[in-house]
Design a protein around this nucleic acid. Sequence first.
RNA 1: GCCGCGUUCGUCUAGGGGUCUAGGACGCCGGCCUCUCACGCCGGUAACACGGGUUCGAAUCCCGUACGCGGUACCA
Length: 495
Amino acid sequence: MATDSPVRVRFAPSPTGLLHIGGLRTALYNYCFARKHDGAFILRIEDTDRARYVDAAEEDIREALEWTGLDIDEGPDAGGPHAPYYQSERKEAYRTYAEQLVEDGHAYYAFDTEDELDAMRASLATEENPNPKYDAQTRTEMRNSLTLSDAKVDELLDAGAEYVIRLKVPQGEKIHFEDEVRGHVSFDASGLDDQVLLKSDGMPTYHLANVVDDHRMEISHVIRGEEWLSSTPKHILMYRAFGWDVPTLAHLPLILSPNGGKLSKRDADEMGIPVFVTDYKEAGYEPEALVNYLALLGWHPGDDRELFSLDELVDAFSLDRVGSSGTQFDADKLRWINEQHLREKDDASLLERVRDVAAAEGYTPSDDALQEIIDLTLDRVQMAHEIVTDNRYFFEDPETYEEAGVEKRWKDDSADLLLAYADRLEAADAFDTDTVERELRDLADAHDVGAGRIIHPARLAVSGRSYGPGVFGLMVGVGRDACIRRMRTAAERLG
RNA sequence: GCCGCGUUCGUCUAGGGGUCUAGGACGCCGGCCUCUCACGCCGGUAACACGGGUUCGAAUCCCGUACGCGGUACCA
């Protein structure tokens, strides 16, 4: 294993759709590992599947990485010594490598058509073995350069017949490797099939392109999802056939849906758990929070800390603290982490953040007013947008009054008390929390009632709700004219 | 079906032969604070999948079973 070489890791997504949350976590772990070891973080676009290629996917990946702050050292935009970073642009190079394998006896041409393959599988499939392989056994009965004469093979090749190149998996061999998160892993080669390396359209499969690129880009550590664990022995075989060192391997546990299954678009929608990174952005999560949460999903810092900035994650990260079991997504915890990050934001950036949110809702308060609203609401929300969307009374008069609140707090004398309070506020020579409170308490004394007798109706009148920030601050945040107006309106509406 | 990987509170996890009457966090419940709601603080609930073995001693090591997940494509 390449242990002394400089750390070079890659995030190698396939542009087949929007970037999945699991993909972002893979990118994050790679990023942290690279930064931790002063290595390089490389982005490589694995666009070898023409059929599933989605044009907007690459832009989405780029945006997701930028949003979360995972800076790329080498890649399509950043450039680098191993360009191009698109596999589709290296089509011919892979063919050369595949042919080299054929020449060396580690791979072979196969001319079987899709129908022939289907027929083979159909005839061999049994209940015991529903997925027959193209392996050491079956390849002897198929049309390939192992069963056909050299002359026939040349003839087919010359005639431009469609073919693939398949890996010639050795028989009865045990393939062992060390995984940084799982320890020792071994597979029996007879359980593998003769993996297609070069497709009939001339494109490499993932397996070929991945091994070739990881080698030529001098990737030191392959950190990827557990879904690749089963194909790792094929990759090892290829490294061996090429005579290359195998990078250090680390397979990350998969992210599961809260009900245990795979995190799918469908049940994610049903449980309000976005699958795509862009959906988190749209839902209003702080990128720092998402990153923090994702880091903790399958990795543990070794102490009791839970709140991390990206830099702190880098500092604390190590592969040997990555867990090996699948991990269920917990939206509540994410929200909690989001809340913590929101509170750690400095005033200026929080103000800017909330200003954007307000603007999106059609509100354009002054910075002073907005700052006041933030001060009043920050410890009552988990999401930035909730400062605005859960507290619209700062921007507009309430149209309705919370029923349970009215039931509980609105008494026979409430209207009269509020009317009197409104008059006092109108006459007051200031409108700050002290004045507002003093006027209220004086009024309560004058009527010989508890302050709550006015406080609660006032809150109801001004915000339409029975809960929220302390009334005095709330009223100042709403403003004198609006408060007076709303109290008089409520007195009229609620009697 | 076969192959592989996994299994500690509901969830994320710590712990990796004795320090474990199993620790932390989220959630949930209760209390305090209080004009309400939050915040904060205090307290509580709740787990070693099961069965065998090894050992003086097992959550920790081994085997088996169950369950979960992944793979089993000219998809990645």
